[in-house]
C-alpha cells in the first residue's frame, strides 16, 4: 500500500484537491491509521501556521498617512499628457501658420527655431539685468521702509495722534498738488 504524500495532505486540508483525488485520498485514509494520524498532525500544524497573532497597528496610522498624502492622486501618465498637449498646440500653431501664409512647413520650422533662439539670446541678458536691478531696488526699498517705520515710531512717541493725523492730511494734500502740477506741465507741453 502506497501511503499519502505530505504535500497532498496539505492540499487536501486546504480543499485544493480535485474531486477524484479527494475520493482516492479519503479511501486510503479509511484503511491507513498511520496516514490518518499524520493528517491530524498536519491539520494542527496548518492551524498554527494560519493563526499567527496580528501585528498591532497604532490607532493614528490612517490619520498620519492621510496627512502625508499629496492634494490629489498624481496621474501616472500626467507628464505624458502635458507633453502631448504642448506638442499638439505647437504643431497646430505651425500648421495654422502654414495654411494662412502658404510658407512651407520646413521654412516655418526653421524660422520658428530662429525666432525662438533670437528671443532667448535677446531676452536672457535683459532678464539678468532686470533681476539685478530689481534686487538692488528691493534692498533699497527694504532699508527705506525700515527707516521710515523707525522714524514714525519715534515721532509717534513724541507727538500726539491728532498732530500725526494732521501731518498725514497735509502730506496727502501736498502729493495731490504735486500730481496736479505735473499734469498741468505735461498738458501745456502737449499744446506747445
Amino acid at each position: 500500500m502506497t501511503c499519502l504524500r505530505l504535500d497532498a495532505m496539505d492540499l487536501y486540508l486546504e480543499g485544493e484537491l480535485s474531486e477524484p483525488e479527494r475520493r482516492e485520498f479519503e479511501e486510503h485514509l479509511a484503511v491507513c491509521p498511520g496516514c490518518a494520524r499524520t493528517l491530524e498532525d498536519r491539520r494542527a500544524l496548518n492551524l498554527a501556521f494560519s493563526s499567527l497573532p496580528p501585528i498591532e497597528v497604532p490607532p493614528g496610522f490612517a490619520a498620519a498617512l492621510l496627512a502625508r498624502l499629496p492634494e490629489e492622486p498624481r496621474s501616472a501618465f500626467g507628464w505624458l499628457v502635458s507633453v502631448a498637449t504642448g506638442t499638439g498646440v505647437i504643431l497646430a500653431g505651425l500648421l495654422g501658420y502654414y495654411l494662412l501664409t502658404g510658407e512651407s512647413l520646413a521654412g516655418v520650422l526653421v524660422s520658428t527655431g530662429r525666432g525662438v533662439l533670437g528671443f532667448v539670446s535677446l531676452a536672457a541678458p535683459l532678464l539678468a539685468k532686470v533681476f539685478k536691478v530689481l534686487q538692488v531696488f528691493l534692498a533699497l526699498a527694504g532699508d527705506l521702509a525700515r527707516a521710515l517705520v523707525k522714524g514714525l515710531g519715534a515721532v509717534s512717541s513724541l507727538v500726539s495722534p491728532e498732530v500725526i493725523g494732521l501731518a498725514l492730511l497735509l502730506g496727502l494734500a501736498l502729493a495731490l498738488a504735486l500730481a496736479a502740477g505735473v499734469r498741468k506741465i505735461v498738458t501745456q507741453g502737449e499744446r506747445s
Binding site: T2, C3, D41, R42, A44, S51
Partner: peptide, 19 residues
C-alpha cells in the same frame, strides 16, 4: 514530496507543544 513513515512513533511538533 516525502511520504509518511508509518513506523515513525516520534510525537510530532503539533502534539508536543501547545498552540
Amino acid at each position: 514530496s516525502p511520504r509518511i513513515q508509518v513506523e515513525d512513533c516520534e510525537p510530532s511538533v503539533a502534539r508536543k507543544y501547545e498552540l
